[in-house]
Amino acid sequence: VRGEQGSYHKISIHSLLPSKVCSSFKESANFNFTRLKVTHRHGPCSPLRSHPTPLPEQILDEDRSRVDSLRRRIAAAATSAKLDRQRGSQVGSKIPVRPGSSVSTGNYVVTVGFGTPKRDQTVIFDTGSDITWIQCQPCVTYCYEQQDPIFNPSASSTYANISCSSTYCSDLDISGCSSSACLYGVQYGDNSFSIGFFAQDTLSLSPTDVIPKFPFGCGERNRGLFGKAAGLMGLGHGKLSLVTQTYQKYGGVFAYCLPPTSSSTGYLTFGTGYPSSKVKFTPMVTDASTPTFYYLNLMAISVAGQRLPISAKVFNDAGTIIDSGTVITRLPPTAYSALRSAFRQAMSSYKTASALSILDTCYDFTGHSTVSIPTVALQFGGGVTMELDLSGTLYVGSQSQVCLAFAANGDDSD
């Protein structure tokens, strides 16, 4: 219900709480474009659902590691255009792993097929990194437990290692060489990592949408917070990402919808056939020193229909990236302070609750059947306004701890 006291969501408390039952998005029978089902990796719709489900604060703590990694990477790029390439000679022993050289975690997964015949692998999809990788047999050093059978490259008739002399190999941030086979390494902000052979094989996004000779990492030494996912799909803007590698086929176009709860499903599409109704566009900005990331221009924030008094310079100085793998939006402190103040004022009739990890504006809705939450809107360059869904405004720990789902950076220049 909108329009009360400006612009508010009026909702049932129960709609905020996660369900234990999957409520799948209704799919039309036929699409003329590639469409994958997106699920939250910890929810009941996920093929990877784990027991026990991580606590909300655990997910936020992992998110803090990812954001620290993003900051380090962007800061490092500002002083050094490119990381030195290192050469090693053995899988898992000579490739240097560098904190913050890439970024990971993320909570949304899709299932795609690798090899011939294809083997389904459920992977995390991530617009904040480039390299697609999966765990591979024989797991020369070690693999973590995953839901799907671990991919066996020797059983695929189309698998081939990439040569050390290939441009694919020189495009890797971290690479090595073993008997002329190219080795890759990725390490993420939470110290998760994958190391193995950089290879090519057929990637099946759907039964009819097949990408031959797709370059990906075949991981022989993998460890970290990937849950039971088989690996990761890199949808960044860099040379080796799925988006760039399929540019001729899909024109560099992809789209996704992240579901409102962990018990519902969304989609990931490739190509121009995405659902186009009501879509408004803002300019995509790129930075040569950090080509992986998609930047956009955040200009202003509104709460309950009232634009907050934040100078555009505050947003311009920092810059903004969009990332499917970061959970909570981070704002310059000046902007976050204004948002928090306006939100707290609009929520002054509710009992406050203690902070939840990085979230400092929380409410206890115990005893309430419905609540009214002020709408939050983000305004981007080109006059595009994104009025957030309620699921995009709040982060629910429990009914007694529901928090504003924003956090601040360290300082305005961060």
């Binding site: 519902s264 969304g266 109704s277 408004k280 995509m284 994104m386 924003f406």
Partner: peptide, 30 residues
């Protein structure tokens, strides 16, 4: 750097068009 995280993107059709250098948002998509 500011980061637009995945909570805030929920239910939007988020469109990346690298060739036209634009990012789109469509509400209520899922």
């Amino acid at each position: 750097v500011g980061i637009l995280g995945n909570v805030q993107q929920k239910t939007f059709n988020v469109v990346y068009d690298v060739s036209k250098k634009k990012i789109g948002f469509g509400p209520g998509a899922c």
